[in-house]
Design a protein around this nucleic acid. Structure first.
Lengths: 190, 190
DNA sequence: ATATCACCATGACACCTGTCATGCATTTTA
DNA sequence: TAAAATGCATGACAGGTGTCATGGTGATAT
């Protein structure tokens, strides 16, 4: 519904033309190839292809298209990865809808726009305290792999696996592996 | 942003006037008292006062105002409770935004509109298999109360508490107390 | 060279969780 | 009335989870 509403609002602006609106990353990528828009607006968490992957693919195949990320998630990790992938703007969904049209205009000129609150966080970004082993195990544990599966596939004792997780939990000030995985993902460390 | 965008779209319709737009239930309730709109559009999960409570208060204080629920959650439990609270329409956010204006018009005439997919589910609603004790304990466990806290405050053994949770888990085909609580909430049993 | 440090790995321990078998009331059914 | 079913309560048990103390390796600094 948001997508439809924004498309309707933007197409009212005299200097903006809406070329299409799609519900997943693959369709969007295809449409970008076909219409070569000046600006692509995309969310991050989407079916089929994430907005981050979509951004990378678009910048690789059609570098003329500027990508504007519009998402709910105020995560420094997402922001950093979005910029690395070549996005030129990062807007949050809790901002008033009037900002969008201006953001689109700025994006079409290639200007960088980043939510100021978030922009400050990205530089104050503490660096990943996790060790390689810890990061690997935390990621896979966060994906639902069980202690036993991890131990077996890495040829470790279950105790060892639990120990890495314990270390990660402590370093991230979490209280369970799941919370630790969530925190690490938020910061873009996984 | 969605709220702003929808307000903008609705105010374009010649026969619809937007009287206000608020970010939490309390403000909305106050504004309804002041403007006495024909229709109130509200989400369910909101800060300060949930949309369900807001609906009940509005129907009690200003029964002339028709309430239209607009939410992400396709939960039969929410739908049932919304209708019980006096809502006259229940719309999902994943529908195209064009439907909203028509829904508002229907609502202003007092017509019942319910997402058809959801409407069918509400009658096929299996009834709550939980016993009083199980329901109470599952609710509080779902709110984060620990086994020990529950046992102490109910003057039960920890084993007993765990046993009720085990029963609930099995009846709801869940695999942990948290999942069980989530399922029960979805169905409106808590 | 050796002392220190970071990383990897292990097992013992305590705690928490869910399951099960059991017992006892109270209500419903035959 | 007797039998069965339902709900409440308990403790024993197995398995999972996080913490800790410990030891080994290799790289770096003194």
């Amino acid at each position: 519904m948001l997508r439809g509403a924004l498309a309707a609002l933007l197409s009212i602006e005299p200097d903006i033309e809406v070329l299409g609106s799609f519900s997943d990353g693959e369709q969007a990528l295809q449409a970008v190839g076909k219409h070569r828009p000046e600006v692509l607006i995309t969310d991050i968490e989407m079916p089929k292809m994430s907005g981050l992957e979509l951004t990378a693919r678009v910048k690789e195949l059609y570098p003329g298209t500027h990508v504007l990320i519009l998402t709910t998630f105020a995560r420094p990790g997402y922001l950093r990865r979005a910029l690395e992938a070549g996005a030129c703007a990062y807007l949050l969904k809790d901002r008033p809808s009037e900002e969008l049209a201006d953001a689109v205009r700025s994006a079409s000129r290639g200007a960088r726009i980043v939510d100021p609150q978030l922009a400050s966080q990205i530089w104050s970004t503490e660096k990943d305290p996790l060790t390689d082993r810890e990061r690997l195990i935390l990621r896979r544990a966060g994906d639902g792999e069980t202690t036993a599966e991890l131990a077996h596939s890495l040829r470790l004792t279950e105790g060892t696996v639990r120990n890495y997780l314990s270390e990660a939990i402590s370093k991230l000030h979490a209280s369970s592996r799941h919370e630790a995985a969530r925190i690490a993902r938020d910061k873009g460390w996984l």
